[in-house]
Simulated assay, not measured.
Amino acid sequence: MSSLNPDRGALLRALAILSGALAVALYCWGLLQVLGAALEAEDGGTDSAPVRPCRTAGPQERGGAEVVDYSVGYVPLRFVCETRGGGSYATDSVPGYVNPGAFGFALAGGLLAVGAGYEAELRARRAATPPGEQTGTTS
């Protein structure tokens, strides 16, 4: 096995931090979208029924006429309109790339952090082994 580059651990840690930061940024962007929709839903007045974020151009049952309430989901991020009769549907308030992107970056960041830890363990084992001794062989 060839020796690992001493900077590989630092690179893996930097990539893990970058990936984690991108996951947090995407999640915050989606959270802003959900909170904006919730603020718009809470805005009372003449044009407040049905709830504005629940007004969609689609089938009649999703047109907003039967919407009685809404809820917000945080994992995954979504704005859900609740209809009369117990039904519900998620609106497109959160862009479609936010939830999978945040999950993907978080997963990649976690895997990169594990890889950085593994590389540090390998480096520590190499440093602890005397130069003339082979590891893992018995006669």
Rank of each mutant, 00 (worst) to 15 (best):
G132H: 13
P59F: 13
P76C: 05
T46K: 09
S71R: 15
C54P: 02
Q33E: 14
A57C: 14
T46P: 05
I17C: 07
T129M: 14
V94K: 00
L122G: 04
L31G: 04
A113M: 08
E42Q: 15
A14T: 08
T91A: 03
S48W: 05
R84D: 15
E40K: 09
T56W: 05
T137D: 06
A90S: 11
Q134P: 04
G115R: 03
V72H: 02
A120W: 00
A106F: 05
A21R: 10
Y27N: 08
V68L: 10
R84M: 14
E40V: 08
A116E: 01
A106Q: 03
Q60G: 08
V68W: 04
G132R: 14
G115P: 00
T137A: 11
G96D: 09
L111H: 04
L111E: 02
A16Q: 02
R55G: 02
L12G: 00
R8C: 05
D47V: 09
S139W: 08
L31F: 13
G101V: 01
W29Y: 09
C54E: 02
P131K: 11
T138M: 05
T129R: 15
L112M: 05
R125P: 01
L11W: 03
E133C: 09
A37M: 06
A127L: 10
G85W: 11
P95G: 08
S71E: 11
R84E: 15
N5A: 09
M1R: 10
P130M: 13
T138C: 12
I17T: 10
Y70C: 03
D69H: 09
T91H: 00
L112T: 00
L11D: 03
V75G: 11
A23N: 01
Y27F: 15
G44K: 12
T56P: 02
T138Q: 07
Y89S: 06
C54D: 01
F79C: 02
Y97A: 09
L77V: 03
A41F: 01
Y27P: 01
A128E: 12
S139F: 09
T135Y: 07
A113T: 04
D7G: 06
V98P: 00
G117H: 03
Q134E: 14
Y118G: 02
E82Y: 06
G104Q: 00
A25C: 12
A16L: 02
G73C: 07
R84I: 08
P100F: 03
E61Y: 12
T56L: 11
A113Q: 04
P53C: 06
S2R: 11
E61H: 12
Q134C: 05
S139H: 08
P76F: 04
R125L: 10
A128D: 12
A41E: 00
F103A: 06
L107T: 09
Y97H: 12
S93F: 01
G63K: 05
L31E: 10
A49F: 11
P50A: 06
T46L: 14
N5S: 14
V75A: 14
V68F: 06
D69G: 10
S71P: 01
Q134F: 07
E42H: 12
G36E: 11
P59D: 14
R123W: 05
Y70W: 13
F79Y: 08
D92G: 15
P59S: 15
A65E: 15
A21E: 07
A116G: 01
G115A: 11
Y97K: 03
T56E: 09
A113V: 03
T135E: 10
R126M: 08
